[in-house]
Amino acid sequence: MTVSVMVVDDHPMWREGVARDLAERGFEVVATAGDAASAMRIAKAVRPNVVLMDLNLGELSGVDATLMITGELPETRVLVLSASGEHDDVLQAVKAGASGYLVKSASAEELVEAVNRTAAGDAVFTAGLAGLVLGEYRRMAAAPDDAEDKPQLTDRETEVLRLVAKGLTARQIANRLVISHRTVENHVQSTLRKLQLHNRVELARYAIEHGLDSEPEAER
């Protein structure tokens, strides 16, 4: 089955270039969008397998679009393709539900592989993203609030993430830890899922605390 892809980027040159690259390599590029608002609208209509998401989109960011798309379209996966190197943005996008991150300077082969793996449901972790996710878990652990539902990494997950951050491929990690390749993938995915789940719970809690969950009519 061909993988359907939507490309979201505010730079037409980049957007069309990536779309062409992907089409040449057998992907079905079903839509492109230049801003977050139309990305959300179009994604709902075309329901692509994978959304390639730039983060620097102007008024509404790619983080907002990621949160909405992954929230409303559970079958659609978001792969962040960012040039800016704004690390906090990348982390926010991953917490919002993106299943991976790739720098724009990645080669066409790396991009193709990343889109395929994202479509298959795997997390696409660069060493850089692993460093960010590790840092985020540690930040939460060190935070003074003693919330009981703070997500934590298991020792094995920490070990795997550190190896990813040190540039080892999933296969190299599997060999080193004497576990299966699939298990490595599962550990990596699990670190992301816990982070995303926690993020959704936090957002919902924030909404309830600030009365954003009820309709204005209901308050009357």
């Binding site: 730079h11 040159m13 980049w14 270039g17 620097n56 040039a83 800016s84 190197g85 720098v103 724009k104 300077s105 990645a106 080669s107 066409a108």
Partner: peptide, 13 residues
Amino acid sequence: HDGVLQVLARIHK
């Protein structure tokens, strides 16, 4: 900056 990065990345690729 983002635009320049995009162009550089595209040329690189």
